[in-house]
Amino acid sequence: MLEKTGIATREQIEKLLPSPGRRAEGPYAVMECFQKIPCNPCSTSCAFHAILPMDDINDIPSVTPDKCTGCGACAAVCPGLAIFIIDESKGGGTGTVTLPYEFRPLPGIGETVKAVNRAGEVVGDAVVTRVLPGKKTKTPLVTIEVPLSLVHEVRFIRCEAHQEEDPSVADTLREIPAPPQTADIGEQDDEVVICRCEGVTLREIRDLIREGYTTVDEIKRISRAGMGPCQARTCGPLIAAEIARMTGEPLGSVAPSAHRAPVKPLPIEFFLGGDTE
């Protein structure tokens, strides 16, 4: 799920939560960091040593809920923006979620915003109760009040001003006209440009390979693909891949074109000036 969609599952989230007793006591950090990646600022930023030091920088952060004060220092430095501060202790059927929000405009305190879940869906309204502008980190932390039932769902907000610019993508996808029948790419290869500089199409490259030209250099000399101003930086790997595909040779045994100075075209005039030695 997470690795296909970017959305963590309920089971993954539930494993992160402290005991019901601790949750009733006050704010706590939830680290939605499920993958071993080389990163440790959360553990080095915690003044209360609530996040275990990492023996291996790839370790998944481990929070000691009894030491965590829910201060949010880790949420402000997390490069993955994966830490949220949850407070279920307020009573009155609501709780707060503090989330990193690096967008403009920043909402104001008291403003009603759309509460959005991990899948980007609006699940209700929320009132902004605190905004830490994050002058130094440039990662503002926005606290919103939501019904208790949503504190483990809501992970993003949408402000009115932002909403106009960014219509729900799901809606646009639904408007899509009937899909055209895809023609085989073989019929369209006149429209596939391999060498942008010299305007060489996939059809020309394929024709040459069929004729028996199976090195990048041969194809370059005949078609000029790779001889333009970019010197095969853009098309070289594509030509090699097409040769490998059509001949069945492994890509590593398709020799790249020869590399000679200069790496970019220069006017003759250039070589006449400057250092003459």
Partner: peptide, 26 residues
Amino acid sequence: IGGYAVHASKIRRAGVPILTSHTIVR
């Protein structure tokens, strides 16, 4: 998804679908 899950999650919650096993046709 090839990139870090945390990067994927932060655009997904902002409403961007990530379509794996998909390609551009034209």
